[in-house]
Design a protein around this nucleic acid. Structure first.
Lengths: 192, 192
DNA sequence: CTTTTCTCTTGATTTAAATCAATACATTTT
DNA sequence: AAAATGTATTGATTTAAATCAAGAGAAAAG
């Protein structure tokens, strides 16, 4: 239980056996079936989720009812509305399962306690945020600076598993495009 | 010296007089004239900069020579190519002064040392990354989900000082638009 | 196993933004 | 003070993406 999470943690910050036992006492498990929500916008995000198995997405829904995907998550990734988690404000995003999923949850109270009792947890958190920030900055740079063809090719090169595991219309949503446009972008690339 | 930086730090994590004195020994100063570079893409980002005074921008330049602004910075903000700073890889971004600037620099070696000698520095860093991550996620959400009018109004509401202090064509670049389009967006808003 | 839903593609048309071009005004620079 | 540079607006035209619409194949549900 919690194998992948502990492995992920130890890769970033190595734990002693005692620390690992302590950490485990703060973790809980959750299983989700395809299409079930982990979080709905307007609710408070009371835990962040490490994905042990399965595939998730976070997204907004606009006035016209269209989903805009903010983030994907598969095994080894963290997913949540961090804004809501950290501030206690209502979530802006929905989070649900694209495939059946097994999650490790760290609640806000567990998170706050861990920051106090386990200094390595703060380092783990900092490294996660560093990585997440850098990934997001690259995504933003790509949106602002590159053509659709370049953006799609960068995306598939950087996240081949995401590109293959999620349906194409979700990739389009993630890129801020209609499914038709992404289909045509792919065609232009394949012709070239 | 370093007044604003120390104030910013203390607001996030309160320091004792001894800790503050220790922290100061790791800081250096730098002044930049308008249009001078702090960093050029391809170089290694060897320090991040806290802005004590002035205005900065980070940006990419595409094949056609067009600037794409990634981030603005004014008094109290941090600016750098964090990707390059953290990984030691060549920077993707240029950083230069839009107004004459006074900076507090924390070099990579100072950063690494501070993480070891001053636990509160790790907390400070974590909180900075949390805030930066959340701000960037909101920007991305806005790009993917909202109309240009909404995006511009959100931007001016959230960062009134930036909107007023930087020329409009830079705001356009930050939004991924041409200056002409932003001019027309503003006109549509004012008519409405 | 068969009906329904989901997924992707393609075509025609509309719509929004980029581009090209000109001008006016403000601010640096010399 | 004059020249040069930077900044913002407006108009005409082109270009790229969204929208509307249809259909075909695959996957999921009953």
């Amino acid at each position: 239980m919690y194998e992948l999470f502990l492995q992920h943690f130890n890769t970033k910050v190595a734990l002693t056996a005692e620390e690992e036992a302590l950490l485990k006492t703060y973790l809980t498990q959750k299983k989700l079936r395809r299409k079930q929500y982990l979080l709905q916008s307007g609710d408070i995000c009371k835990a962040f989720a490490f994905i042990e198995k399965g595939a998730m997405k976070s997204y907004t829904v606009d006035d016209a009812g269209v989903e805009h995907i903010i983030q994907f998550g598969i095994e080894g990734w963290i997913i949540a509305d961090l804004y809501s988690f950290l501030t206690g404000e209502p979530a802006l995003y929905n989070v649900d399962a694209v495939e059946d999923a097994e999650l490790v949850l760290i609640s806000k109270s567990a998170h706050d306690a861990l920051l106090k009792v386990l200094p390595k947890y703060e380092t783990y958190t900092r490294l996660n945020f560093e990585g997440a920030y850098i990934a997001m900055q690259r995504r933003l740079t790509s949106i602002i600076s590159n053509s659709l063809e370049e953006r799609y090719e960068q995306f598939t090169a950087q996240y081949p598993e995401i590109a293959q595991r999620f349906p194409q219309h979700m990739i389009a949503s993630y890129m801020g495009l209609t499914p038709e446009t992404l289909s045509r972008v792919r065609k232009r690339i394949s012709v070239k």
